[in-house]
Write a protein that binds this DNA or RNA. Sequence first.
DNA 1: AAATCGGTCAACCGCGACTTT
DNA 2: GAAAGTCGCGGTTGACCGATT
Length: 229
Amino acid sequence: MQGEHLRKGTWLQEEDEQLTSFVVRLGERRWDSLAKVAGLRRSGKSCRLRWMNYLRPNLKHGPFSVEEELLIFQLQQQLGNKWAKIARKLPGRTDNEIKNYWRTHLRKRPQVQQGDCKYKLEIATRNFNQKSTDMVFKDHSTGNVCCEDSEWETKDGSSIDTLSLSDWELENSPYETRILDWIVELQNGYCEKELEQDCHSTGNCNYNPQEFEEGCDSWDYFTSLWDMN
DNA sequence: AAATCGGTCAACCGCGACTTT
DNA sequence: GAAAGTCGCGGTTGACCGATT
């Protein structure tokens, strides 16, 4: 196929229909041949990309859920920019979609850049507000919660991608109030020093400054938020 | 109303890996 | 084993659109 005859740019609906009908008939292979047979003035690569990223059945096209965002965050930490591998863990999502989402949404968050636990707390809290709080960040090797290379799981041990979240939502519960207060404090620059001062002034010393500095173990402090005793 | 800016995302490109001949 | 063809991946580009000036 001569290069100058190849179309580029946005796909037309007729091209999509043409491509779909031929992929269904011939299978997802030999894209150059398929493009020729289908009479598409597109490169095989372009056809493959269009099919994989847009036309393929069972693709999700809506916004990412909190669970998906959590998973992307964790997997990116573990695997780096291995978008194809990450995509395999998110059924219905493409590597391109995840890559774009990371670049436009997750990457620029300072919490993500620092790789600290505050971000995990942030999304967990959002998840709490939306659906459920029964989630911990657990390092399977040590059993500790909230460490960098940890697996995400619920307290009953199920993984996050199989998480079946309940529909109920707490409103104005003590737990919700407490964690939201804490988030406001964080947003207002309520820093580690102030937490330490609180500790000394109130005698409530759940906070361990060393652990907070190390980041990972700070989840132990965060979990104290749930202790209503 | 027009111009500019910034964010988003579909699509392209280059390259390495893999498969077929 | 070598060459050609094909596929898959990650980085980048550019068109589009809404917000702002």
